[in-house]
Design a protein around this nucleic acid. Structure first.
Lengths: 192, 192, 192, 192
DNA sequence: AATGAATGAGTTTTCATTCAT
DNA sequence: GATGAATGAAAACTCATTCAT
């Protein structure tokens, strides 16, 4: 079975398994063995590639964040008008690729992990800053000096909806959520 | 040393200790012994009173939620106008009694606990529904048929700000947060 | 079964068990469970009282050293002449209480542990310095300025015999070893 | 890259690496991977050549002993008088080639390994017997019937100094150690 | 000849939980 | 009512060893 170049494949499989496992358990209280089993490898291998459980979890968090980033960047690239740019950012977190119960559940857990893990905190900070700066940048042409203020409100709204989705998936789906947030932000802008 | 009527005192001490410990650790990964030590009792006693760790944590969650409820109800009682009622609800979560890093950190952890613990989920549901119905009730006189829609947005905004406070306590304090949310909601209402 | 004041009893039992286990295995590669089993307790209790395996091992090393110290001090107290004092020191390590295969084997292992564990090194240093200063002090009246030099040689001789005993217990027993060392030292002194 | 005749080269590299690694760690608790890494090969290769870890360690022990033997034999060949022969033996263990912290540390570890590994014990016995018979042989012309007794004392003295050097390398270097032992032995002989 | 991949058994460690007193 | 003692199951982690290539 041993083949060359398995490392990236195993790492990816373990990260995916970790996210799925966290999503399903709704908690970080999962064992490395569970993750490994789901990834189809031994627990030893997980340690071999990630050193310890925390690193594996952090790699999973990084993965979720980078998926999100990717989605936003893709949207921004296609956007032509300021409103489209705004929409791309808002829609990023609610896009089908990220807005699945598994991912949302994992994301919420990572969110809270940032309270106790310095590295998770760092990663969260990066996410929060990027979201804010993306929003401000998109809002500038439309709201000028009020861009920052509106961006903060928009960010809170996004996080709030995201949060709730994790706990009440029957609530607004991604499309609806995007619409609601967009409407609020646009009204914010329109407000002289 | 055993005295009569110690039960409520011990229970309260253990619950307070649990919240403080969770707040400080930023995680539910704390030991019963830590909690008991902080409460000045043996870990055996914690089990004596709460049966097991989960029940102790849930009692702590209930306590946080009931403190919040209390705050809101007190505000509502004093409120005279619809706007004051609205303000009381929004301000509830940001009031000094709840808006301390410890409490917020514990709250976020309970939030996520709701993903894996049915009872925590039930408690969270109660909170979410009460917040929503409170908001709708307060908004009805001002927004009529749009009350529900505005309430949802307000709830998301509140949660979003609350969430961020846990991770970036340097951000808006309670007073400012209340103002921002109120402003947004009032603008929402004003919008025909 | 749980009684009050068990801690010192359990600690002693675990330390004794550790020494016996090391002695029997001839190596520090023994498990905490083995030690605990021999002491008649669970492995959890060993950790409860000592924190981790290293601390338990170090406690055992301390115990061996303190037994040795005790023996020497007892001998010194009873000694009246310089030669008797010298004999007490030399005899200390070869006394029946310390000179059993178990203890010697444990001692050799601790000796080597000092190469990798700073705390073990510290303990060994204390032993080595005490032995040297005891010897010098006892030799001074008899050898004056040559006391230090003779002491060093005596110490090496003692260690050398001790060492060999661990690997070839059929060799000189404690009484004989003491005699040989004493004879060598006395000749050293007599030498103008 | 596989070449012909690599076996002896790899074996030697692995043995050297093992000694260096033991010396540096001060313990036999090193991993095969560490040794292999230092030798610049994979851990699989170490097993390929030595079968298992124990065999590799024993090979390293054999190497240390054979280096020592070599040194002594070289010295004996050049020696002309009984005293020179004696000196060659004593000096053997303290010669620069063996008397380096790495080697001494490895040696002490092998010494203790002999307590638990039959093969290591066998090797140690060979060393001890050879040392004793070399000493006796060299002492015979000078001490006749007391040769054995003096040899035993000399051996203990050598081991004692060697031992201490491992733990306190600031102490006498090889030249001084040789002189001290030689002086003691010669005095022993002179003593009627 | 040599390796990277992979395993799985074994060990330490943690901790909720139980219980005699 | 309260505790200290004790357990044992579960988890992380390590590492010698195997093996396909």
């Amino acid at each position: 079975m041993p083949k060359l170049g398995m490392e990236p494949i195993r790492r990816a499989a373990l990260i995916d398994a970790a996210i799925a496992e966290i999503g399903q358990a709704g908690s970080l209280d999962i064992t490395v063995s569970q993750i490994a089993r789901r990834a189809g490898v031994s627990s030893g291998l997980a340690h071999h590639y990630f050193g310890n459980k925390e690193q594996l979890l952090l790699a999973a968090m990084r993965h979720v964040l980078s998926d999100y980033s990717l989605e936003v960047r893709r949207g921004l690239k296609a956007a032509k008008t300021p409103v489209e740019r705004l929409n791309a950012i808002v829609h990023g977190g609610f896009a089908p690729s990220n807005f699945r119960t598994d991912t949302v559940s994992a994301w919420l857990n990572f969110y809270v992990l940032a309270l106790s893990s310095p590295e998770a905190k760092r990663l969260h900070r990066i996410y929060a800053r990027r979201l804010r700066s993306n929003l401000i940048h998109a809002l500038r042409p439309m709201a000028d000096s009020r861009a920052a203020e509106i961006a903060d409100r928009a960010a809170a709204l996004i996080d709030g909806f995201y949060l709730n989705y994790g706990l009440a998936p029957e609530l607004p789906d991604g499309v609806v959520a995007t619409k609601i947030v967009m409407a609020a932000v646009l009204r914010d802008i329109a407000d002289s």
